[in-house]
Design a protein around this nucleic acid. Structure first.
Lengths: 230, 230
DNA sequence: CGGTACGGTTGACCGCGGTCAAGCAAATCA
DNA sequence: TGATTTGCTTGACCGCGGTCAACCGTACCG
């Protein structure tokens, strides 16, 4: 457990709590708890009660819905500054998803009641949370659109293009199996499609590193797929 | 356009604005606009600016994301008391979905700025909106889970069981094509699956009316499907 | 009335993507 | 260092669900 003194600085850098005045920051600091989570450990499981929300300080967290057969569908990834778990907290329902650390992570946990009080004192906090939830809704709708309206190849290409890249090179942030789940595919299919793109000379894969020599060509490939469907 | 006097009564019955005091209600009433939408008309299209939110007073609205080929994927249905469009309003982004009336409907429209002011005066309104967005997030996650982790038959059975029924009889609220889209299916497949359930003696279909003589048997059928997958 | 547009059903076909299994390379550990 | 596990790839196979087409009943309309 790190010393409590870190908390104020940590909080003030989170999008959710930016621009709080000193008083409010002190209040929130008192209400927050640091949670250290090792890689592969679960933050919470499906069915756990949701009494508060988490903010990622460092590390990365995977939100997924588990299936009966041990499979799982990754809903979203969270990195530093992201908040998660709010929706279930507001609903007063147990989590229907599970959260797992993809790296050693440091989280901030805030009790629902303390957050309620903070909102009463500062409506702008509520607005920021509304904005945050809206973003999440937006990405979920986009995901649904992606899964329903695009085929596997389109989804893969779109993912490759959506990731940050420098010098025409992008990195898979996690294992390919996890990426596959996020894309609604099996690892086998993802592997095959990447191989297909490699054969077409559009990318070259080396472990987690992917070289994209001609971004425009890759984009063109995706639109060609789209046209084929229409 | 109906007389303005209706607005106060309408608003005070919406979940979002319940428990407002007279002053606040008067303020909101002044900020609200009634919008009449005929069946098949669009409330907004993809790309329209989102300057406010809608609340359904009477009627029903379909939220869908349009595809290139004229297809569409239904995201959600909204009935009386439901609010929609908030997420895009808070994001200050144009709509990425379209809203269409499934019946002649009466909507209430509230300007973003007026709502902002109302939140500042009454944090409980913000909390109610947070709860509303949370519900939406919840159902979206559930949808993603359904589409990714369950096959077509399971989705159909689950839909049949999720709809309100009396005397072992349920009604399709809309055209089967629209239901099919919401379930991520083609109308053909939905038709076939319903026929299959009929052959199995689990349901009997007559137009929009579906008789479910033995609910438990139908539930059992769904779990059997689940087991087969695992 | 016949014409037609629409929603729904049915049949024939097929391709996408999942499943199962084997094999391989790198990481992890005794 | 060898043993074991984990991540990834590849091949063979196949079934679910989509596509395309024809057809049917009903509602709507001139």
């Amino acid at each position: 457990m790190r010393p409590k003194t870190d908390l104020g600085a940590l909080l003030s850098h989170q999008p959710l709590f930016r621009n709080l005045d000193a008083d409010q920051l002190a209040l929130m600091t008192a209400a927050c708890h640091q949670v250290n989570i090792e890689k592969h450990q679960f933050v919470f499981h499906r069915g756990d009660p949701a009494n508060g929300l988490y903010v990622v300080a460092v590390g990365s967290i995977k939100l997924a819905v588990p299936a009966a057969n041990g499979q799982e569908k990754v809903i979203e990834f969270f990195g530093p500054g992201d908040a998660f778990g709010e929706a279930f907290m507001f609903l007063d329902k147990p989590y229907m998803v599970e959260a797992q650390a993809l790296d050693d992570s440091l989280l901030i946990w805030i009790d629902k009641r303390d957050l309620d009080a903070a909102i009463d004192r500062d409506p702008s906090l509520a607005k920021r949370m509304l904005a945050g939830l809206s973003v999440r809704l937006h990405t979920l709708v986009k995901d649904i659109e992606t899964v329903n309206l695009q085929n596997a190849m389109q989804r893969v290409v779109m993912y490759l293009l959506s990731q940050p890249r420098e010098d025409g090179e992008m990195h898979f942030p996690f294992n390919k199996g996890i990426i596959a789940s996020k894309l609604g595919l099996t690892p086998e299919t993802l592997s095959r499609l990447l191989h297909q793109l490699t054969d077409a000379g559009l990318i070259s894969v080396d472990g987690k590193r992917v070289l994209i020599p001609d971004v425009a060509a890759l984009e063109h490939r995706m639109y060609a797929e789209t046209a084929r469907i229409s």
